[in-house]
């Protein structure tokens, strides 16, 4: 993952940007920094249902580290994926289970994207990340 910001820097940047235009340009730019999935990874099995735009999720486990790979065909969703990736980056499965992603979205004034109409795919994605983390957390 090419994302270089950490969560504190992300929050600070959001604080600094004061209108919707700057925020959305930033979100879209963030999305450009995530590593795109290979076409071979954009399978039916990796597709998250319930999303108007398409979101794919896969992950690998290296030692204790969970690495999620996510992608979407929509720019803004990719940007929001980047936000989620920054939040879970470097975290253990246990940490991810406990993480308040909704709280983070609220703090960044992006909660509308988790609403039942538009963001339900994103909500489903977060749920999936938590599920994956939970199965691994209970094992370890």
């Amino acid at each position: 993952m090419a994302l270089t910001l950490d969560i504190q820097e992300l929050k600070a940047t959001f604080d600094f940007l004061d209108d919707w235009e700057e925020r959305y340009r930033f979100i879209i730019d963030l999305g450009k920094e995530i590593r795109p999935l290979e076409d071979s990874q954009k399978t039916e099995a990796n597709l998250i249902r319930g999303c108007q735009s398409q979101v794919w999720l896969t992950y690998t486990q290296q030692d204790e580290q969970l690495v999620f790979l996510l992608d979407s065909d929509a720019h803004i969703v990719r940007g929001l994926i980047a936000v989620v990736l920054i939040a879970i980056n470097g975290k253990t499965a246990d940490d991810i289970v406990a993480l308040d992603i909704e709280g983070l979205f609220a703090e960044l004034d992006l909660l509308a994207h988790l609403s039942l109409t538009r963001g339900n795919g994103l909500r489903a994605m977060i749920l999936k990340i938590k599920q994956v983390a939970a199965t691994l957390a209970s094992v370890s």
Partner: peptide, 13 residues
């Protein structure tokens, strides 16, 4: 180059 949902969100804003 954009998904319809991107455009919908940018217009909504």
């Amino acid at each position: 180059g954009a998904h319809p949902n991107d455009v919908g969100t940018l217009l909504d804003q």
